[in-house]
Nucleic acid binder design. Structure first.
Lengths: 218, 218
DNA sequence: TGTTAGGTTAATATCGACATTTTAATCCTT
DNA sequence: AAGGATTAAAATGTCGATATTAACCTAACA
């Protein structure tokens, strides 16, 4: 990566630290501690924090500093419900608009996901699996062709990942991969057959159902 | 308003200046000029600019400062198309979930809009009319009950307003209010009758059609 | 014993200054 | 005279310092 300013580097790492749960919800983000951790001055820190405020990962209280946004069951339900609707919208548009290259990419991504699923189930590198998983679903929704919609989708995915990582911490290595894999196959079939209604229903469930498991943790 | 830090004040004003077109697309945002205009130091400015970068209203080039994001016909089409889909989604969910208070608020907002429409057509205070218009549509979508979805909707609305204000500048006092008003009446009827399909189609057109006029300006 | 007032400590928000980098303007060479 | 190199000017990114504000602890009083 090219030389980027300190704020951008801090943003990247701090965002990671929040999403992965290193800084838990509600945690007070003291300048002194952050300066120490990221080895930068206050001003780049404030810039990064300002950006995280817009992303709704950090709250700012005037003259009272910054804190990691609290999590709540209400927000969890809302995010996953919204994600399900947005993803469903993306899939629908992708089926209407997707071309041949789009189809090929889906098949490729599905193959990569499936061939690595077994390996990862063994050694338990869930973050790596999640990346493939993400890539698979992105291959599908990419067909909608809308930068704006894909951005909205990504924002929601990132907001959700804080909750998802919460789950990974408590349920390390205890994944329901088999069910998941079957859902993926059904999804690919419906999408490639351009079966709009089935595909939209499948993806909606694929997002909503796991969120119901998550709800038990809060 | 309570005492808020400088960055928040700058953010508000600078955002306004960009959305209303005071700072046109592509304009270089020099620190010296911004310091002069908003009467603050560099650091609050950089915080505000960082936030606007996340909102995709400002671009940052490393060591080369900030510029207002360029506009393009591609983005215009994408934003309005996405807005139409999102708004349609909101309306659909609102019809499914809205209660009696929601219905009452719609009727109230529609009344306010209609009773002020004639007045504003005369003296031409389009910004005030736009606020009522916004309020009317918000009253409808509010029924979806999803904070996340409403936030996505608001973000897109704000991004679109830069294009809308571009139109207002070139077409001052030349509104198609009558057509608009009729569409609103049809929408209210469909929504209150909980006619999902009609309402979704109406709102989709209500957003898409004006955007096609806008496309001529770029 | 619970509460409030005062003083102490710590943290935040902002500014001015400096080092670094980019932009421009000028000058030299061919 | 044109193009490239060199120098000057301006702008950016970062840090340290300072004033202001909130949080905390202690102690006195009801």
């Amino acid at each position: 990566m090219p030389q980027e300013n300190s704020a951008a580097k801090v943003l990247f790492h701090l965002k990671q630290d929040i999403l992965t749960g290193f800084f838990v919800a509600g945690h007070k983000l003291k300048m002194s501690a952050l300066k120490e951790r990221y080895q930068v001055g206050v001003n780049p820190l404030r810039e990064a924090l300002s950006q995280l405020v817009v992303m709704q990962l950090v709250q700012v209280h005037d003259q009272r500093g910054y804190r990691v946004c609290p999590v709540s069951q209400t927000e969890l339900v809302d995010i996953y419900d919204t994600r399900a609707h947005i993803e469903s919208l993306c899939v629908g548009l992708a089926i209407e608009r997707g071309d041949e290259a789009w189809e090929a990419n889906i098949v490729a991504a599905a193959y990569r996901l499936q061939s690595n699923a077994d390996l990862l189930k063994a050694d338990g590198d869930l973050q790596a699996w999640e990346k493939l998983h993400q890539g698979f679903h992105y291959a599908i929704v990419k067909g909608c062709g809308s930068e704006e919609l894909l951005r909205v989708r990504l924002d929601l995915y990132e907001k959700a990942s804080r909750y998802r990582n919460l789950w990974l911490k408590h349920n390390a290595g205890h994944g329901a991969f088999d069910v998941n894999q079957m859902e993926h196959e059904q999804l690919v079939t419906a999408v490639l057959a351009r079966d709009l209604e089935s595909a939209k229903k499948l993806i909606f469930k694929h997002i909503i159902v796991p969120s119901q498991v998550l709800q038990g943790l809060l």
